[in-house]
């Protein structure tokens, strides 16, 4: 009888520990996604793309210069179906890429032709 009781208590303990573990994992995930900084990086990216689009992507480096210091970015320009790269720019002082970079795509029209821009953006470490 006491052996059974021991098993039952052990079951209950394991169940409780698992509950704590799963609750911790779920809430950690809920708390982390999406993080504030990630959301704000995307906002910055949309700002930069809007400015680039207004200036017809004529001088991306000049636009990059007017971005926040800790931000790094890389711009790739493609034709309408993104099959051929037509331009490539990296903000000066930044590496080529970063593992946690966020990517934003935008399609725009130049002289009646569709073009595609890809902006990869990340925070300098």
């Amino acid at each position: 009888m006491s052996y059974k009781g021991f098993i039952a208590v052990l079951d209950a303990l394991i169940a409780l520990i698992m509950l704590v573990m799963f609750t911790t994992i779920i809430f950690s995930q809920l708390q982390n996604l999406p993080s504030l900084n990630e959301a704000l990086i995307f906002k910055q990216g949309y700002d930069i793309l809007s400015v680039l689009e207004y200036t017809n992507f004529s001088d991306p480096q000049a636009v990059f210069f007017e971005t926040s210091g800790p931000l790094c970015m890389r711009l790739e320009l493609y034709n309408g179906v993104a099959s051929q790269k037509t331009g490539y720019y990296v903000k000066s002082g930044c590496d080529y890429n970063y593992v946690n970079e966020k990517t934003i795509w935008r399609t725009y029209v130049v002289e009646g032709e569709f073009k595609t821009a890809k902006l990869a953006i990340w925070m300098k470490e």
Binding site: Q44, D47, S50, V51, Y54, S58, V63, E66, S68
Partner: peptide, 14 residues
């Protein structure tokens, strides 16, 4: 907070 914008004549601003 720093944001990027552009004047109506195409000059980028911070």
């Amino acid at each position: 907070v720093e944001r990027t914008c552009v004047s109506s004549n195409g000059t980028p601003f911070l």
